[in-house]
Structure formats: structure tokens, C-alpha cells
């Protein structure tokens, strides 16, 4: 093998090795951050550093309540889109009246948690990363430390708790609005009354389907919070660095959500 080719192979292998080590190290940071957050939730009060409920509510307001309009818009759009595509596909087999099965199961198990997760990652995960990044650069995190205020307890835990409560809540909301909007379209297209549509949906769905969707959204919530915060804390450089980590946090969170969704779906049907 020519020396130049050999060198480029070595360089490529070195680079891959470095990326792998960095990625494992970053995963370790995420794990440590989550572990520390859990520690402060349970032992904060004993350490005379309790998690402030008011901070959790403030975050819930920001992450959850203010996201309701966009979740409603996206949820209803996805519901109607599923109804349109479902009726179109099933009409080929003359089975369009079965569209309610597809809508109920896909919205509850798949679309509501996935779309909600992606929206919250883009909206609140990025905001969390930008906030933490700016605070790191402005030495505000150092300031918290020297004031005897643990930054994980003060900043991360409220965001994590708010995510864990609000992402499943938004997912539930998205499920209802998605299925309701789909029902409106189905009613017009197939002439099925809303009451009949709701009865059929209730018959189809089991508690397991609901828990499948909500369970996923709970994991998405943790992923969005930890990825957002960790990226913010790892910021380097000034304003440009904050911009970069904000984008990075959103991309990482969406990738993590989609991969988790796939794994969850696979494991749930085994």
C-alpha cells in the first residue's frame, strides 16, 4: 500500500477513534447530569437546597402552557392528514370505514408523542440550551456556584421536572385534538357521526395503547431536558458558540427522539 494511502487510513482511523471517545464521554456527561438531577430531587431538601416548586411551575408555564397553540395546530393537522391518507389508501380495498382503526392507533401510539417531542425539542430544548449556554459564558453558572447554589438543583431540576410533567400532558392533548380533528374530516367524507366515531375509537383503543404513547413521551421529556442542558453547559466561545450549541441540542434531541421511538416501538410489540 502506498505510504500516502496508509497515512490517510491512519488519519481516518484516528479521527473516528477520537469521535467515538468524545461521543462516549458526552454520553457519560448526560448520564451524570441525569443522575445528579435525580439526587437533588430526592436529597435536595436534606442538603438544605430544596427544589423550588415556584421554579418548576414557571418552567411548566414556559414549556407546557405556552406550547398549547402550536401543539393544537400541529396535532389537528396531523389528524386530518392521517384521515385523508387513510381514507384514500383504504378506499382501494373498499375498506375506508376502517380508517378509524388507523387513526386511533397511529395517533395514540406514534404521531402524538413523536410530533409533540419534536416540537418541544425545537421550542423548549433549544431555549434551554441557549439559556444555559449564555449563563455559562456570562459566568452566571460560576456565580451560582460561589453563592452556594447548586446549578443543577437550581436550573436543571426545575426544567427536567417541568418537562416530565408537561411533555406527556401535551402528548395527551395532542392525541385528543388529533383524533377529534380527524373525526371531523371522517364525518364529512364518510358521513359518520362524531358520536359513532368516538364510540368506535374508544372500542379500538386500550389502556396499553395510551400508556405506550405516554411512556414514550416521558422518555422524550428526559432526553430533551438533559440534551438541552448538557449542550448549554458545554458551550465554548461567545455568542457564536451559543448559536452552535443551540442548533446542536435540537438536532441531537430530535435524533435521540426518533431512535428511541423506533426502539420503543420494537420492544413494545415483542
Amino acid at each position: 500500500m502506498p505510504e500516502e494511502t496508509q497515512n490517510s487510513v491512519i488519519r481516518f482511523t484516528e479521527k473516528m477513534g477520537r469521535y467515538t471517545v468524545d461521543a462516549i464521554e458526552e454520553l457519560g456527561i448526560y448520564g451524570a447530569l441525569f443522575g445528579e438531577s435525580v439526587y437533588w430531587i430526592f436529597f435536595g431538601a436534606r442538603m438544605r437546597q430544596p427544589v423550588r416548586i415556584s421554579s418548576v411551575f414557571a418552567q411548566m408555564m414556559e414549556i407546557g402552557i405556552r406550547a398549547i397553540p402550536i401543539i393544537a395546530l400541529m396535532g389537528s393537522t396531523i389528524g386530518i392528514m392521517l384521515a385523508i391518507q387513510g381514507i384514500y389508501s383504504l378506499r382501494i380495498f373498499g375498506a375506508e370505514s376502517r380508517v378509524v382503526y388507523g387513526i386511533a392507533l397511529s395517533v395514540t401510539r406514534e404521531f402524538a408523542p413523536l410530533i409533540t417531542g419534536i416540537l418541544v425539542a425545537g421550542r423548549s430544548g433549544s431555549a434551554l440550551a441557549a439559556r444555559l449556554g449564555t449563563m455559562t459564558i456570562n459566568q452566571e453558572i460560576d456565580a451560582l456556584n460561589v453563592m452556594g447554589i447548586n446549578p443543577v438543583r437550581y436550573l436543571v431540576v426545575p426544567a427536567l421536572l417541568a418537562m416530565v410533567v408537561m411533555v406527556p400532558a401535551l402528548t395527551l392533548f395532542s392525541m385528543f385534538i388529533g383524533m377529534y380533528s380527524a373525526g371531523l374530516y371522517v364525518g364529512v367524507d364518510l358521513d359518520i357521526g362524531m358520536a359513532a366515531y368516538i364510540d368506535q375509537t374508544i372500542d379500538i383503543l386500550t389502556l396499553n395503547d395510551l400508556m405506550h404513547g405516554l411512556g414514550k413521551s416521558l422518555i422524550f421529556a428526559v432526553l430533551i431536558a438533559i440534551i438541552g442542558v448538557a449542550n448549554g453547559a458545554l458551550v465554548k466561545g461567545g455568542a457564536e458558540g451559543v448559536g452552535k450549541i443551540t442548533t446542536r441540542a435540537v438536532v441531537q434531541a430530535i435524533i435521540a427522539i426518533v431512535i428511541t421511538d423506533m426502539l420503543f416501538a420494537y420492544m413494545a410489540i415483542q
Partner: peptide, 20 residues
């Protein structure tokens, strides 16, 4: 816990102020 107690006895004025 000891570090928390110590930090109550220390004040820091950062270069940029680091106000929230």
C-alpha cells in the same frame, strides 16, 4: 455540605458582573 457552608462566607464580584 461543607462547601455550601464555606461559600456562604465568600463573596465574588465577577468581571462582567454575572447578574442574572
Amino acid at each position: 455540605r461543607e462547601m455550601f457552608e464555606l461559600r456562604k462566607k465568600i463573596g465574588v464580584a465577577f468581571q462582567g458582573g454575572a447578574l442574572f
